[in-house]
Design a protein around this nucleic acid. Structure first.
Lengths: 152, 152
DNA sequence: TGCAAATTAATCGTGTACAATTTAGATATT
DNA sequence: AATATCTAAATTGTACACGATTAATTTGCA
């Protein structure tokens, strides 16, 4: 007597689909700048924190060097960022914004901001849902890997 | 005077991170069965709807053949599904579950169900958040691609 | 000082995603 | 029937994601 798992009842699936919709939304919104969503949030983090090591950037985005290294190389090729080996600690690679990136900052913020208005959602509702989703993230992160693997 | 976009204020980023946490959760929960999350939801849809064409399966998951074809080939190699060219319409490929998949159905549902309890979230809260996220998905899907590209 | 342990990026392999193209088969129209 | 149109799946190319490994440095400590 096992409860069947229906796809549309599940939070994971709702998140999975919504995240893909956002990806599509940003693909269109960012098309003028030839940026993907992961590239865009990398720039957002750099706008917010300034020059950072790959490690530090990865911590703000929950991404490791296996994802970031090729992504940052593409951003560098398109002149959004510069990667440079730190002189004080040769293990580190510092990522900094180019003049192009700094110059386009306000324009990108304004453009994305106005695209966002098409979502037509009240700020309080938006913030509430964001908080709920962040809470789910937080709860999931508390689950120990061992708890899950020991389950079997 | 442009409003700066802070990463942690944004719904898209909360969704992005929560979805990745769920991926990690399912990677561990599904490890005994050697299934990835996209493979798992493909099986869920087949458990729910029975044999389906690649097209129909893709419609339930919002995925196209570019993603599904290689994924289904892997599921077939591991004896979860069988792909067979339809006789009535030779363009179609029908996907059906194997005896292994049908035999493990209840066990998988029970196992994932008990892993899910570790999330420790009240059913009403879970359902409320799922509904909110689905609503965001729905709102995003209403935005015309032209509206966005015309924005520039 | 000298060397083991820890840290940081980069690399490699596997598995999605998705736009765009191709191929084959079905359907509609003349 | 012949051709154009449409449809389904596969293929190709680009870009993440992430676990695991490797290489180069730095740090801790005997």
């Amino acid at each position: 007597m096992v409860e069947p798992l229906r796809l549309d009842d599940q939070l994971c699936f709702a998140l999975y689909k919504a995240q893909k919709q956002f990806n599509h939304f940003y693909a269109k919104a960012l098309a003028p700048y030839q940026l993907t969503y992961p590239q865009y949030i990398s720039l957002l983090s750099l706008y917010e924190h300034g020059t950072m090591s790959v490690k530090a950037l990865g911590q703000t985005l929950d991404l490791d060097s296996g994802t970031l290294t090729p992504l940052l190389k593409r951003l560098e090729k398109d002149d959004w960022i510069v990667r440079s080996r730190s002189t004080e600690d040769e293990r580190r690679v510092d990522v900094s914004l180019t003049d192009k990136a700094l110059g386009l900052r306000d324009e990108i913020f304004a453009h994305v901001g106005s695209c966002m208005e098409l979502l037509d959602m009240a700020p309080e509702v938006y913030a509430m849902i964001r908080g709920n989703v962040a809470e789910v993230d937080s709860q999931l992160s508390k689950i120990d890997d061992e708890q899950l693997t020991a389950m079997k």
